[in-house]
Design a binder for these strands. Structure first.
Length: 432
RNA sequence: GCGCCUUUAGCUCAGCUGGUAGAGCAACGGACUUUUAAUCCGCAGGUCCUGGGUUCGAGCCCCAGAGGGCGCACCA
C-alpha cells in the first residue's frame, strides 16, 4: 500500500497481484483512534479493508473505508516508490523485493506462466500425456554436456543430475505411450551467461509414428500459439527489429547455409583435408580428433549461426554430432535432425529418433570412445536404453524446447536471469 | 577461465585538481477533508564493498581480494 496523507483524509493505493484500488479514509467516518492508527501505516504493509465503493471528486474509483485491519507489517523499508529497484544484483538475490516493486518483473513471470500453460493446452489437445521421469540419473545421457555429480549415501553410489529428458521419455515410447512430454528442470555444469543458467527448464516431447518434419511443424505451432496466448501478439523484438513469428519459418540444411556463407559446397563425405582447410580459413582451430561432421558443425557456428535472425530450422546435421538421430533416408552422411534458431540463439532441437538398437549401440560406442579420449561432454553406452530399443521402438519424432529462451523471446527479456525467479548466483556474505 | 565496467544513506544517485560526505524519495516530528511517485515546515540518517599501501591528509591515487553486470571462452 502507498499512502497520501491529507490531514483528516487519507488516500491509500492498495495493490494486489491483479490490480490496484484507491482507499478513501475519512477521519469523520472511522473515528479518531482508528484514523490515528491508519496514519502509522507504511509503504508495503498488508492491509484488509471493508467499505463502500465511491468515486472521488477527481473521478478515481475508491473504497470508502469503514473498517481496516493491519494484516502484516512491513518492518523493512521498501525500495524507492518512484525509482523502484534497479540494482540487478538485489533484483536477482531478493526477488521478493523485485516483485513487490517492479510491475515489469511481475509481467515477465506472468508471461512465463502463460507460455507453459499454453504449451500444456496445445499438447493435451493433440493427445500428448505429461509424465515425470527421474532427475537423478545413473548415467547422464541425451545431450553433450558436463553433468553435476552427486552421491547417494544409502546405496553408496554416484548419481548425476540429468542433462536431458530424452532417454527416459523414449523408453516410454517403447512402452507404447505413443505421445509423451515432460516439462522439467535439467542441469548442466557449465558457464553462466545471459543465455545460460546451470539449471534451466526444458520441454521434451516424443511422438510415435512421427518424424522430424512433423515435429518441426509442431514446434512452430507451439511457439506461435504461446505467443498469441501469453502476449496477445505474434510480434517479437529480435536485436531491435520487429519480427512476426506467424510468418512461416524457413527450413534449410546446415550444409546449404555454410555454402551460402562461404561460397563453398561442403558435405561430410568430402575429404577431411578439404574441410579442415576451409575451417582454418575461417579462423577455426581444427582439433585432430574431429571428423568431417564436427568440422562442418564448427563451420556452421562460425559462418552462419549468428546471422539467423528470423526463426529458422537448420536441418541435416552430420551423423557424427547426432548420436541419437536417425540417418537421413536420402543421405547416409546426414541425419533427420533440426535445430531452431531465432535471433542467433538456439531455441529447440529435434529429430527423427534412431530406433535401431544395433546402430544405436555403435553410435554409443563412438561416444564412449570420445569420452575415454578425454571429451568430458561425450556420452556413454546406456545398456538399459539399448535393451529398451531391442523391445522395439516405433518410428518417432522428438522435440526439445528451451522454455527459458522462449520466454526471453516472447517477454522481450535481455537475460535468462530475467525470466528465472531465482537465478544461480554466488552465495551472499551476511557477515559472520 | 580472460578482458572491460561497476560497488557512496533503506532506495535512486551526485561527490571537482587528494582537503575530512551530499541531494531527492523513504523514515521520524509537526500542519493540512478530494489526493494521484512529487503539499509545506522541521529533524535525523554513512564500515564510501573489504584489506593493505602512498600522503600531513584518501570516497578520490596505487596493490591485492570480494560481489555484481557486460563481452569473450565454454555451452554439439
Amino acid at each position: 500500500m502507498l499512502m497520501r496523507d491529507q490531514g483528516k483524509l487519507l488516500f491509500i493505493t492498495l495493490q494486489d497481484r491483479t490490480d490496484a484500488i484507491q482507499l478513501f479514509v475519512s477521519k469523520s467516518v472511522i473515528g479518531d483512534n482508528a484514523f490515528d492508527t491508519m496514519t502509522t501505516l507504511d509503504l508495503g504493509d498488508w492491509l484488509g479493508v471493508t467499505g463502500n465503493i465511491m468515486t472521488t471528486r477527481k473521478g478515481e474509483l475508491s473504497v470508502k473505508v469503514s473498517v481496516a485491519q493491519l494484516l502484516a507489517k512491513a518492518v523493512r523499508p521498501m525500495p524507492d516508490k518512484w525509482h523502484g529497484l534497479t540494482d540487478t544484483e538485489v533484483r536477482y538475490r531478493q526477488r521478493y523485493a523485485d516483485l513487490i516493486v517492479n510491475e515489469d518483473s511481475r509481467r515477465v513471470f506472468a508471461i512465463r506462466h502463460e507460455i507453459i500453460a499454453s504449451f500444456r493446452r496445445t499438447l493435451h489437445s493433440q493427445g500428448f500425456i505429461e509424465v515425470e521421469t527421474p532427475v537423478l540419473h545413473v548415467e547422464a545421457g541425451g545431450a553433450h554436456a558436463r553433468p553435476f555429480v552427486t552421491h547417494h549415501n544409502a546405496l553408496d553410489m554416484t548419481l548425476y543430475l540429468r542433462i536431458a529428458l530424452e532417454l527416459h521419455l523414449k523408453r516410454l515410447i517403447v512402452g507404447g505411450m505413443e505421445r509423451v512430454y515432460e516439462i522439467g528442470r535439467v542441469f548442466r555444469n557449465e558457464g553462466i551467461s545471459t543465455r545460460h543458467n546451470p539449471e534451466f527448464t526444458m520441454m521434451e516431447l516424443y511422438q510415435a509414428f512421427g518424424d522430424y518434419s512433423e515435429v518441426m511443424t509442431l514446434a512452430e505451432h507451439l511457439i506461435v500459439t504461446a505467443a498469441t496466448e501469453a502476449t496477445g501478439s505474434t510480434w517479437v523484438d529480435i536485436d531491435g527489429v520487429e519480427v512476426d513469428l506467424a510468418k512461416p519459418w524457413r527450413r534449410v540444411r546446415m550444409i546449404d547455409l555454410i555454402e551460402e556463407a562461404t561460397g563453398v559446397a561442403v558435405h561430410p563425405s568430402h575429404p577431411r583435408e578439404k574441410l579442415a582447410t576451409l575451417a582454418a580459413q575461417h579462423g577455426i582451430t581444427v582439433d585432430s580428433r574431429w571428423g568431417t561432421g564436427k568440422i562442418i558443425e564448427e563451420l556452421f557456428e562460425v559462418t552462419a549461426e549468428a546471422k539467423l535472425r528470423e526463426p529458422t530450422f537448420v536441418t541435416g546435421h552430420p551423423v557424427e554430432i547426432s548420436p541419437l538421430a536417425r540417418v537421413d533416408r536420402n543421405d547416409p552422411f546426414l541425419t533427420e535432425r533440426f535445430e531452431l534458431f531465432v535471433g542467433g540463439r538456439e531455441l529447440a532441437n529435434g529429430y527423427s529418433e534412431l530406433n535401431d538398437p544395433i546402430e544405436q549401440r555403435a553410435r554409443f560406442q563412438e561416444e564412449q570412445a570420445a569420452k575415454d579420449a578425454g571429451n568430458l561432454e561425450a556420452g556413454t553406452v546406456d545398456e538399459d536404453y539399448l535393451r529398451a530399443l531391442e523391445y522395439g521402438m516405433p518410428p518417432t519424432g522428438g522435440l526439445g524446447i528451451g522454455m527459458d529462451r522462449v520466454t526471453m523471446l516472447l517477454a522481450r527479456a535481455q537475460s535468462v536471469r530475467d525470466v528465472m525467479l531465482f537465478p544461480t548466483l554466488r552465495p551472499e556474505d551476511f557477515g559472520s
